[in-house]
């Protein structure tokens, strides 16, 4: 028979594994639970977004699931942390990158110090999300069972709600930038987080130190 198309197994030769399947699953579980909690939370936050609550089954349903899925979000965060904590440790050189972040914003990346697997901006986003998750957890549990708060302590309830929504808004700010970066600003990132691979060019441009490490033999396919 003539030529036959063969199913290509694994990455093409110029591609590098960026995220393992476990990392990708953890990421999308975090993202999915977060988005549900965010959408329902925003519905409770303002009447102008109450329709978000309606599209996921209505108020009582959303009120039932929001804290549970929120807990799920915290758990997936722990799993993500377990996998990424060493790559996300802030190092002194990150200061330099952050001081020059305006070059990152203006797409003059060649003026920036070379970054490892994650750049300082990604690290800050990650730690911000993690600390906010802890705040959301603590305040959220109080809001879950307000009847357990005695009358003389009722005045803390609105304070707790304000802290909960402030932490949520900080993460939403981070998320807007995160999604924008991943989907629009850095082409190839969506592929990295879905099928797991990036091109060499991507790695050299966005994570040169990491590229050097992986190109030295470990993970380059």
């Amino acid at each position: 028979m003539g030529t036959r198309a063969v199913l290509h197994r694994g990455p093409k030769t110029d591609q590098i594994e960026r995220y393992t399947p476990a990392e990708r699953i953890a990421h999308w579980l975090t993202a999915g639970t977060y988005v549900y909690a965010m959408a329902t939370g925003l519905g409770f936050f303002t009447p102008y977004m109450y329709w978000l609550v309606e599209i996921v089954g209505g108020g009582p349903t959303a009120r039932f699931w929001h804290p549970i899925i929120g807990l799920g979000y915290v758990f997936t965060n722990v799993y993500l942390h377990h996998q990424w904590k060493s790559d996300l440790k802030l190092i002194p050189e990150d200061r330099v990158w952050l001081d020059k972040v305006k070059y990152y914003i203006t797409n003059e990346d060649d003026l920036l110090p070379e970054q490892d697997r994650f750049d300082a901006g990604q690290k800050l986003f990650y730690w911000g999300m993690l600390y906010c998750a802890v705040i959301l957890l603590v305040t959220g549990v109080v809001m879950w069972f307000p009847e357990s708060i005695g009358r003389s302590w009722h005045w803390v309830l609105p304070l707790v709600v304000i802290i909960h929504s402030a932490a949520a808004l900080i993460t939403i700010g981070g998320l807007i930038i995160h999604v924008y970066m991943g989907v629009f600003m850095v082409p190839g990132s969506v592929k990295a987080m879905t099928i797991g691979y990036v091109s060499r060019g991507w790695a050299i441009l966005h994570a040169p130190l990491w590229y050097k490490k992986v190109a030295n033999g470990r993970t380059v396919k």
């Binding site: 914003i105 203006t106 797409n107 600003m185 850095v186 050299i204």
Partner: peptide
């Protein structure tokens, strides 16, 4: 972020 995209565009890695 929308204005940023219009002003600076994506970081293409063309190598």
């Amino acid at each position: 972020v929308a204005i940023h995209y219009l002003r600076f565009g994506p970081k293409e890695a063309e190598m």
